[in-house]
Nucleic acid binder design. Structure first.
Lengths: 121, 121
DNA sequence: GTTCACACCTTGACATCCTAGGCATAGCGC
DNA sequence: GCGCTATGCCTAGGATGTCAAGGTGTGAAC
């Protein structure tokens, strides 16, 4: 959290564990290659979320190794070779697990943030 | 994220970066000592959030070093000595910064999670 | 007098993320 | 043909934060 002191990178900050969820979700929409995944996340989140390549590719390999993702080399519209990822069956289940966990975490933290002094529930 | 595979510890999972926010918030309610902070968070979040001591104390020292937190040795109701933390002026500002960042992150991720196939932004 | 809950702390391992590089190719202007 | 930019893949090294697992000491209760 020291990085926070740099105002430039502040917005780009990601929380550990969030990246996997985001990737799984975007890949679930349609088969897509790595480079485009980062662009898509950034676009959908209205520039709020930025995925660096140094985080992206290790994450993709991690998810592939775990069997959540399947990869295939194909050709993009622009005629380049790219590794297209799609969600495996296990990956689809995992997406639901992680989505649920994320929602529960948000609720839990919201409870704490809404707490007021003296209130002992 | 390998830890996720253990279903027991799943609920206790915290996302990196969240801990500071939670601590700042709880300390803002009233001066409180470390051991009680963890209990308080667990209680307010209805057992959803569990802070281990191995995460808690390093975090407290971190926050104190940064000047967000101030510490004083006092005596608890049960007659024991304990280190009571309170929020410094800078810490109070930081709490607002982190709260804002958290809310923005939640919104951004919600956008991605709500995205549907075919929908281009 | 020993067991429990309270209250503090540290160490070592591990996963994740970021910075900062590198490589290769397609398309464009000149 | 030549260089530039955008596209597309990748890795290495370091910093950070968390966890599991340990340890210390004291008050109260039985």
């Amino acid at each position: 959290m020291t990085r926070q002191q740099d105002p430039q990178s502040r917005e780009a900050e990601l929380l550990q564990g969030t990246l996997d969820l985001l990737i799984l979700k975007v890949v679930a929409l349609e088969p897509i290659h790595g480079y485009a995944i980062a662009q898509r996340i950034q676009q959908i989140s209205r520039e709020a979320l930025q995925i660096r390549q140094g985080s992206l590719y290790p994450a993709l390999h991690r998810l592939e190794n775990r069997g959540w993702l399947e990869a295939r080399w194909e050709t993009t519209d622009s005629g380049r070779k790219a590794k297209f990822y799609s969600l495996s069956k296990v990956g689809r289940a995992q997406l639901e697990v992680e989505t649920g966990a994320w929602e529960r975490l948000c609720e839990a933290i919201a409870l704490v943030l809404r707490a007021e002094a003296g209130e002992l529930q």
